[in-house]
Design a protein around this nucleic acid. Structure first.
Lengths: 238, 238
DNA sequence: GTACGCAATAGTGTATGCAATATGGTGATA
DNA sequence: TATCACCATATTGCATACACTATTGCGTAC
């Protein structure tokens, strides 16, 4: 029996495991909005003690995926329409800024690589596989952020994407995939043509476009249909 | 003797105290860049045990004020020119976006209140009191963020401001206060005059203006002169 | 003098225990 | 029936203990 398979695994693995697992649950709302976390129960489930568990919970609280209240402990964040609206507005400014930097800094070859990616995935993907659609969407946007050469913008975008993951997923059930894809291609094509401002405008419009409907949906509570206790929501299939 | 004055104080106070104190030290680089944190020593100094201390350290790590490495523990973040540059670029896009929302959402009375604040503090303040100058500068920018009615933009700005606090402080030693103040007033005046795009342009220029010099200074290492072990740096006077 | 190995020490990662607080249920009272 | 008080239980906040890893200093070999 190898050392890795022992009960006591590598030092540092406990916090890491707890962090990764709970992050996933908060991101997808496998933990329901406002649901309180029972430390003993969760610790047992994840095979760690309360100490590393709480370290992970503190990290996730700082990332706005959980909330904390003294003597009441940790809970899942709420699903709040105004918060989502604000995040989309922030994302709008951020991604416009990213496109601006990409225009200054990315090479033609790098942009063509993105365009190839968009063409390949457009052909090969099943548009009813929502997890995959969301993943591809996020990959495009984070790829652009990477080409901006600005790590802080990339990390900020990743943080936003984690927090809006669920909403994006629900929104995908109602979005024409070809429109989204087309806008992605337009952004890159404008950049290849040296039309930075046009690229920025498309990106801004691309993000703004569905904001109103998303917020409306959240206000009416439709999104909660997808907040499940088990296996029907986003990315909880294994 | 009241209960509050007992040795064991309110539940939740340990993490809070550690968090606040260490945050201050990392923000001002009272902890020097890359300096390792000795948990036992720090816990003793702050009168808490390692458990709440590590919870605070995990929070601060998630906020990018500390770094973490398994089996080596926590250290203060580095002072890195590229990171500061990236943060300023991010701040540029963010604050331009904030001005855009303020133009849409703030009332005339609210804007005049800001203008009053700028006039009052311009007259009353001692321009050699750098801590106060930085505080006033941050207050203006965060006030605008508040008027944007977008909490996520405000929180993101606060996070950036915490991380660039030190650089701002050093930069203040070299900046004409009246120029800064004048630009702040211009932004608000343009907004009062209904010239949103002009306000955005001034804000963008206001932030960009000193970026090159700041990064140059950091590359040359001048800023490290102010990284002290005791009382000569920013906001460590008590 | 330098490089290496090794032992002693220091420091981190995690489990556990205990005290303080919150929660939930039961019965008494209006 | 609704409300309140009170107690038992559940849960959190923090301190501490212990095992494992990193670091440091010293002696030995070259």
């Amino acid at each position: 029996m190898s050392k890795d398979s022992e009960a006591r695994s590598t030092r540092g693995a406990s916090v890491e495991r707890a962090y990764t697992e709970i992050r996933q649950r908060a991101m997808t709302f496998a933990l329901r909005p406002g649901e309180r976390i029972n430390e003993l129960q969760l610790a047992k489930e994840l095979n760690v003690s309360r100490t590393p568990l709480r370290e992970a919970l503190n990290r996730l609280t700082a990332e706005d995926l959980l909330t904390f209240s003294v003597n009441r402990g940790f809970s899942c964040r709420e699903l709040d329409a105004k918060e989502i609206f604000d995040l989309y507005e922030l994302r709008e400014e951020l991604e416009v800024g990213i496109v601006r930097r990409v225009a200054e800094r990315a090479s033609r070859a790098e942009l063509e690589e993105v365009l190839d990616f968009l063409h390949e995935t457009a052909e090969l993907s099943d548009p009813t596989d929502l997890d995959r659609m969301v993943a591809l969407d996020m990959k495009f946007h984070e790829w652009m952020a990477d080409l901006s050469r600005n790590r802080q913008m990339l990390e900020t975008l990743k943080s936003i994407n984690t927090r809006i993951y669920f909403v994006r997923w629900v929104d995908m059930t109602d979005t024409r995939r070809d429109v989204t894809q087309g806008e992605h291609r337009q952004v890159v094509q404008h950049l290849l043509d040296g039309e930075a401002e046009a690229a920025e405008a498309v990106m801004r419009q691309h993000i703004t476009r569905r904001m109103d409907q998303i917020v409306e949906m959240l206000k009416r509570g439709y999104a909660y249909i997808y907040v499940t206790q088990a296996m029907n929501g986003p990315a909880n299939h294994g």
